[in-house]
Design a protein around this nucleic acid. Structure first.
Lengths: 259, 259
DNA sequence: CGAATCCTTGAACACCTTCAACAGGGGTGG
DNA sequence: CCACCCCTGTTGAAGGTGTTCAAGGATTCG
């Protein structure tokens, strides 16, 4: 699914990234920035060598040095319970920032792992902070992204705390549809880069339940699913099931809302 | 339980607050700030008239103008599902900030409601942003608070997604203990300002389950509970049940971690 | 081709919820 | 000051939703 043109070739790693030309810039940090500011930002941002599937961007406990913006591919972030089980805290599509939760303790409390071949921009945080005096809108921009992230977490909290299994999966699928749509992909038909296991984990359900729900939704003609590929046949019905609440698209931009 | 000395009398409302003399300043925003910076901050902060129990600080949908820091008492924040049910997203003790999730859309998506007589400092956000050029550490400070809040949400996600009812309540009680301790109150004995209903709602459990768990914990001699008052008899056992993971106290301060 | 992994399906069970009834405070009004 | 009422909290029993356990099928990759 990732747009190959966006994936930096290994030999180009660490080269400056042109936010100016990045199709994601309206989803990413530099929302509404002018050219001079963009140039300053581009100066400190590095494109990292693409991650292969299941490679880690950072591990739990790693010291925090940078934020990362997804360019192509996708990531999952997850924490570990003390007994070693995983809790997936989010899936991250192109244009979204990861690592925000590590700012306070300067250490990562989640790990980030590529679900497929994935390319990210690295934003060294100390240099990023240095920019704030010259680009005063930057911290505000970052705050907006974080604030949005908090709303995502709250939506998820609501899913886990109040919703039944059906509603959770429906909400998940509808949300993904919206995010793919925002990125110029079809919102009716897309590929799941994460496993059933990850989905279940994320939604607080057993894998078996997720599987059963997929077949159930298919029997209701709400969607077709085969392996990773999903085709939503009755979006309105799914939205209804999910308890809609698609947040108003927040025209002022920033990263796309995640379920 | 609130410290009466901290509650502004109504006639003093809107008067400047002395962060300098506030016993909470090391839990609140002005962590590690010098006197001149504190003075600037105090300039824009107003103490609001105390809220009576069950009064709202802001409602869902209200436009966002200010952040609020709890001075005394406590608040709950909650969102509504589309069918009108409540999801409690957090309880907020003195020294903690609320309203952060509204920055991105300039509109509140949660409501904040006083659980008891509660006094807060109002921080008008636009004036607060104006301060950033003169106090460059301020946005960083705010980011740290938000980042911490994100970790709180992730902990809660883990509770709701992975933990059984016992573990959830134990984690909740242990966390409260820690937060009271940080504020100079006893961490072995405290009062719950929230109802069983709110606790259950927050933890994704039915009220009845919470009630049963309390009696169950009592039978195990883990605690005594009567009405609102809780006395933890075997903190280690409760921590074990909770799956401990008390975050390392994060000496660099900021607001106390919430479960 | 074989191994490993992921996904699906079935059946029994467990945990928590729901429904229901009751107890105990706390506040209000007589 | 007492009686009453409402709300919150407690306890019991039945029921359901999702889990767990188990096994079989599909897909990928060496």
């Amino acid at each position: 699914m990732p747009n190959d043109a966006l994936i930096a070739r290994p030999d180009l790693a660490r080269i400056k990234v042109a936010c100016t030309n990045c199709t994601l810039y309206q989803l990413c940090l530099p929302v509404g920035m002018g050219d001079p500011e963009l140039a300053l930002l581009e100066d400190i941002i590095k494109v990292k060598r693409p991650l292969a599937r299941s490679q880690h961007l950072y591990q739990m406990g790693d010291s925090f040095t940078s934020l990362y913006a997804v360019r192509s591919g996708s990531l999952k972030t997850y924490a570990l319970t003390e007994d070693g089980r995983e809790q997936v805290t989010g899936f991250h599509l192109p244009g979204e920032l990861v690592g925000l939760d590590a700012i306070s303790s300067e250490r990562h409390h989640c790990a980030a792992r590529a679900l497929e071949t994935t390319s990210v921009c690295e934003i060294p945080f100390d240099r990023f902070e240095d920019l704030w005096v010259r680009i005063p809108s930057l911290p505000h921009q970052l705050l907006r992204v974080m604030s949005k992230e908090m709303r995502h977490d709250q939506t998820l909290l609501m899913l886990l705390g109040k919703k039944a299994a059906e509603e959770r999966l429906a909400a998940f699928l509808v949300n993904l549809a919206g995010r793919f749509g925002q990125r110029g992909f079809s919102s009716r038909e897309y590929n799941l880069s994460m496993s059933r296991n990850d989905i279940g984990n994320y939604l607080g359900l057993a894998v078996e339940t997720v599987s059963r729900l997929f077949t159930h939704f298919q029997e209701l003609n709400l969607l077709n699913v085969h392996r990773k590929s999903v085709q939503l046949l009755d979006l309105p019905a799914l939205q209804a099931l999910a308890g809609v609440s698609e947040p108003p698209p927040d025209t002022r931009a920033g990263q796309g809302g995640r379920v």
